[in-house]
Design a binder for these strands. Sequence first.
DNA 1: TGCTAATTGAGAATCATTATTATTTAATAC
DNA 2: GTATTAAATAATAATGATTCTCAATTAGCA
Lengths: 140, 140
Amino acid sequence: MHQPDEELVSILHKKGLKVTPQRLAIFRYLANNESHPSAEKVYSDIKGELPTISQGTVYKTLSTLADIGVITELKINNGQSRYDSNTSVHVNVICPRCNNITDYQSETIIKFWKKLSKEIGGKISGQRFDVYKECSTCEK
Amino acid sequence: MHQPDEELVSILHKKGLKVTPQRLAIFRYLANNESHPSAEKVYSDIKGELPTISQGTVYKTLSTLADIGVITELKINNGQSRYDSNTSVHVNVICPRCNNITDYQSETIIKFWKKLSKEIGGKISGQRFDVYKECSTCEK
DNA sequence: TGCTAATTGAGAATCATTATTATTTAATAC
DNA sequence: GTATTAAATAATAATGATTCTCAATTAGCA
């Protein structure tokens, strides 16, 4: 696992934002977490490291990190947002039962995105590809 | 414009659900509407036809129509759901400023979906492809 | 025409998220 | 190091979309 802090610190400086323990901890947590946690999950897990952090700070920090582009926010069908430190083009494989999310990446997706973005044209600022598929746990 | 009622009535019968004026009106409204309206917009527009309809009924009806697969629900980043009677594989081109949504369809997408669903495998129950791009109105 | 379960309408309740504000703190200058 | 100051945080209230509850109504069938 590489050091994610340097990247974040450099971007925060570039944007004129402060480097705070809350921002570092939440970013680090997501960088080491494949599970696309909700804000609530981030809050309850991060309290081990920062016991006095508030829910509001978690929400604002996640939103800030998404604004500067180091994480992505996914509003899913159960009404909550999930957060992902994988900012490259990929497919979110979402279990329609338990809302577990895993990332899927392949050449097919990269090529499709190249072709599609050219086809659509204009100032494209992002994309999101979801596939709904029952996870192995729910299948049973 | 073809008659959308027959299709809906047949599916409702198949599922053992009742054919109500509310369900017909909301489905017809969406079938003739490209703009991916919110529940609130559906409610305020449908009141012209059904003045006594309640917001709760609109929400429940939209959810029912999505459950039986005749419309799709899109939770977007401003926190609301948008509804679309286009249930074929397509890309939602979403304006990140005003949240206007237009559908984009092409061979590229059809081919990609065939390839991707084979690649991922398993019981896939749906998909959603979004592209964020400023609409012509917001560009100005 | 009457019966019955599903649906509707009205309003209360919920849940995730956002806003407010006083306090604290990171970053910069001295 | 210490002071300054604007930005960030913590606590809590407020919001907004959606869901729930339940009595009244209605579609579908006998």
